[in-house]
Protein backbone atom coordinates (compact mmCIF):
# COMPACT_ATOMS: atom_id res chain seq x y z
CA UNK A 1 0.00 0.00 0.00
CA UNK A 2 1.42 3.34 -0.92
CA UNK A 3 1.38 6.62 0.94
CA UNK A 4 -0.84 8.05 -1.75
CA UNK A 5 -3.89 6.02 -0.93
CA UNK A 6 -4.70 7.44 2.51
CA UNK A 7 -2.96 10.75 1.89
CA UNK A 8 -4.75 11.63 -1.32
CA UNK A 9 -8.10 11.54 0.47
CA UNK A 10 -7.00 14.67 2.28
CA UNK A 11 -5.67 16.44 -0.80
CA UNK A 12 -8.07 19.39 -0.61
CA UNK A 13 -7.65 19.91 3.13
CA UNK A 14 -3.85 19.62 3.09
CA UNK A 15 -3.54 21.80 0.03
CA UNK A 16 -5.47 24.58 1.79
CA UNK A 17 -3.20 24.25 4.84
CA UNK A 18 -0.12 24.32 2.61
CA UNK A 19 -1.25 27.47 0.83
CA UNK A 20 -1.86 29.13 4.20
CA UNK A 21 1.55 27.94 5.41
CA UNK A 22 3.24 29.36 2.30
CA UNK A 23 1.57 32.64 3.18
CA UNK A 24 3.31 32.53 6.57
CA UNK A 25 0.52 31.03 8.73
CA UNK A 26 2.36 29.06 11.43
CA UNK A 27 -0.76 27.51 13.01
CA UNK A 28 -1.93 25.99 9.71
CA UNK A 29 1.61 24.85 8.99
CA UNK A 30 1.79 23.08 12.33
CA UNK A 31 -1.49 21.24 11.77
CA UNK A 32 -0.27 20.28 8.31
CA UNK A 33 3.09 18.94 9.52
CA UNK A 34 1.43 16.99 12.32
CA UNK A 35 -1.01 15.45 9.86
CA UNK A 36 1.75 14.64 7.37
CA UNK A 37 3.85 13.09 10.15
CA UNK A 38 1.16 10.47 10.73
CA UNK A 39 1.15 9.53 7.04
CA UNK A 40 4.94 9.58 6.83
CA UNK A 41 5.25 7.32 9.91
CA UNK A 42 2.93 4.80 8.31
CA UNK A 43 4.78 4.98 5.02
CA UNK A 44 8.28 4.52 6.45
CA UNK A 45 7.30 2.05 9.20
CA UNK A 46 6.24 -0.41 6.51
CA UNK A 47 9.59 -0.12 4.74
CA UNK A 48 12.31 0.56 7.33
CA UNK A 49 13.27 -0.51 10.84
CA UNK A 50 11.79 1.71 13.58
CA UNK A 51 14.83 3.93 14.24
CA UNK A 52 15.53 4.49 10.54
CA UNK A 53 11.82 5.10 9.97
CA UNK A 54 11.66 7.92 12.49
CA UNK A 55 14.86 9.39 11.04
CA UNK A 56 13.29 9.29 7.60
CA UNK A 57 10.15 10.98 8.95
CA UNK A 58 12.26 13.82 10.31
CA UNK A 59 14.37 14.03 7.16
CA UNK A 60 11.19 14.30 5.12
CA UNK A 61 9.72 16.99 7.36
CA UNK A 62 12.92 19.02 7.08
CA UNK A 63 12.93 18.56 3.31
CA UNK A 64 9.26 19.56 3.07
CA UNK A 65 10.13 22.71 4.98
CA UNK A 66 13.40 23.59 3.27
CA UNK A 67 12.10 22.84 -0.24
CA UNK A 68 8.58 24.20 0.14
CA UNK A 69 9.18 26.78 -2.60
CA UNK A 70 9.19 23.87 -5.07
CA UNK A 71 5.50 23.20 -4.45
CA UNK A 72 3.52 24.48 -7.43
CA UNK A 73 -0.03 25.30 -6.25
CA UNK A 74 -1.43 24.26 -9.63
CA UNK A 75 -0.21 20.70 -8.99
CA UNK A 76 -1.49 18.09 -6.49
CA UNK A 77 -0.02 18.65 -3.04
CA UNK A 78 -0.09 15.01 -1.97
CA UNK A 79 1.90 14.03 -5.06
CA UNK A 80 4.53 16.57 -4.03
CA UNK A 81 4.75 15.12 -0.49
CA UNK A 82 4.81 11.59 -1.86
CA UNK A 83 7.63 12.55 -4.23
CA UNK A 84 9.70 13.81 -1.31
CA UNK A 85 8.93 10.79 0.89
CA UNK A 86 9.85 8.40 -1.90
CA UNK A 87 13.09 10.25 -2.56
CA UNK A 88 14.00 10.11 1.14
CA UNK A 89 13.20 6.40 1.23
CA UNK A 90 15.49 5.71 -1.73
CA UNK A 91 18.12 7.89 -0.05
CA UNK A 92 17.82 5.79 3.12
CA UNK A 93 18.17 2.53 1.14
CA UNK A 94 21.25 3.90 -0.58
CA UNK A 95 22.77 4.83 2.77
CA UNK A 96 22.00 1.39 4.21
CA UNK A 97 23.78 -0.26 1.31
CA UNK A 98 26.89 1.82 1.93
CA UNK A 99 26.83 1.47 5.71
CA UNK A 100 29.24 -1.25 6.92
CA UNK A 101 27.35 -4.13 8.51
CA UNK A 102 28.26 -5.86 11.77
CA UNK A 103 29.32 -9.51 11.25
CA UNK A 104 26.78 -11.94 12.66
CA UNK A 105 29.02 -13.33 15.43
CA UNK A 106 29.44 -9.81 16.84
CA UNK A 107 25.76 -9.04 16.86
CA UNK A 108 25.21 -10.98 20.08
CA UNK A 109 27.88 -9.01 21.88
CA UNK A 110 26.44 -5.77 20.60
CA UNK A 111 22.98 -6.45 21.95
CA UNK A 112 23.87 -8.56 25.01
CA UNK A 113 23.54 -5.66 27.42
CA UNK A 114 21.95 -2.33 26.77
CA UNK A 115 24.13 -0.47 29.22
CA UNK A 116 23.66 2.99 27.87
CA UNK A 117 19.96 3.10 28.55
CA UNK A 118 20.37 1.58 32.00
CA UNK A 119 23.01 4.18 32.85
CA UNK A 120 20.85 6.95 31.47
CA UNK A 121 17.84 5.73 33.45
CA UNK A 122 19.93 5.63 36.61
CA UNK A 123 21.16 9.17 35.96
CA UNK A 124 17.63 10.43 35.37
CA UNK A 125 16.42 8.73 38.54
CA UNK A 126 19.25 10.30 40.60
CA UNK A 127 18.30 13.71 39.23
CA UNK A 128 14.71 13.20 40.30
CA UNK A 129 15.70 11.87 43.72
CA UNK A 130 17.56 15.10 44.42
CA UNK A 131 14.13 16.68 44.88
CA UNK A 132 13.52 14.49 47.97
CA UNK A 133 14.72 15.06 51.54
CA UNK A 134 17.89 13.08 52.38
CA UNK A 135 16.24 10.38 54.54
CA UNK A 136 13.53 9.58 51.97
CA UNK A 137 16.00 9.73 49.13
CA UNK A 138 18.19 7.03 50.71
CA UNK A 139 15.18 4.80 51.27
CA UNK A 140 13.99 5.10 47.67
CA UNK A 141 17.48 4.52 46.32
CA UNK A 142 18.04 1.44 48.46
CA UNK A 143 14.68 -0.14 47.74
CA UNK A 144 13.90 0.87 44.19
CA UNK A 145 17.25 1.44 42.48
CA UNK A 146 19.55 -0.98 44.30
CA UNK A 147 16.85 -3.56 44.99
CA UNK A 148 17.73 -4.09 48.67
CA UNK A 149 15.06 -6.25 50.42
CA UNK A 150 12.58 -4.25 52.57
CA UNK A 151 13.42 -6.33 55.65
CA UNK A 152 17.10 -5.47 55.34
CA UNK A 153 16.40 -1.75 54.97
CA UNK A 154 14.02 -1.83 57.91
CA UNK A 155 16.62 -3.56 60.09
CA UNK A 156 19.30 -1.05 59.14
CA UNK A 157 17.18 2.08 59.65
CA UNK A 158 15.25 0.86 62.68
CA UNK A 159 11.94 1.53 60.92
CA UNK A 160 9.19 -1.06 60.65
CA UNK A 161 8.83 -2.81 57.29
CA UNK A 162 5.44 -1.20 56.66
CA UNK A 163 6.87 2.24 57.52
CA UNK A 164 9.60 1.72 54.89
CA UNK A 165 7.03 0.68 52.30
CA UNK A 166 4.74 3.61 53.03
CA UNK A 167 7.59 6.15 53.00
CA UNK A 168 8.91 4.85 49.69
CA UNK A 169 5.41 4.78 48.21
CA UNK A 170 4.68 8.36 49.28
CA UNK A 171 8.06 9.58 48.09
CA UNK A 172 7.48 8.05 44.65
CA UNK A 173 4.04 9.59 44.54
CA UNK A 174 5.42 13.04 45.29
CA UNK A 175 8.09 12.49 42.63
CA UNK A 176 5.34 11.59 40.17
CA UNK A 177 3.82 14.96 40.95
CA UNK A 178 7.10 16.81 40.22
CA UNK A 179 7.59 14.91 37.00
CA UNK A 180 4.06 15.69 35.84
CA UNK A 181 4.55 19.35 36.62
CA UNK A 182 7.79 19.46 34.65
CA UNK A 183 6.09 17.97 31.61
CA UNK A 184 3.29 20.49 31.90
CA UNK A 185 5.85 23.31 32.06
CA UNK A 186 7.42 22.34 28.75
Amino acid sequence: MSLEVPLIAQEAEYRELMLAALGGDGASYRILLQGLTRHLRGYFARRLDPAAAEDAVQESLIAIHARRATYDPSQPFTAWVYGIARYKLIDEFRRMKRRPTVPLEDAGALFAADETSAALARRDAEKLLAALPQAKRDLVRDVKLDGTPIAEVAARTGLSESAVKVTVHRALKSLGGTLGKRHADR
Binding site: A21, L22, G23, G24, D25, G26, A27, Y29, R30, L33, Q34, T37, E54, V57, Q58, L61, I62, H65, R68, A69
Partner: peptide, 16 residues
Protein backbone atom coordinates in the same frame (compact mmCIF):
# COMPACT_ATOMS: atom_id res chain seq x y z
CA UNK B 1 9.63 14.83 16.01
CA UNK B 2 7.11 16.97 17.94
CA UNK B 3 9.84 19.43 18.81
CA UNK B 4 10.98 19.49 15.21
CA UNK B 5 7.47 20.30 14.02
CA UNK B 6 7.14 23.04 16.62
CA UNK B 7 10.45 24.55 15.55
CA UNK B 8 9.63 24.40 11.84
CA UNK B 9 6.14 25.83 12.19
CA UNK B 10 7.10 28.68 14.46
CA UNK B 11 6.71 31.82 12.34
CA UNK B 12 7.44 30.26 8.90
CA UNK B 13 8.73 32.71 6.31
CA UNK B 14 6.15 33.42 3.60
CA UNK B 15 7.21 31.89 0.28
CA UNK B 16 6.32 33.48 -3.04
Amino acid sequence: TDELIAALSEAPQPVS
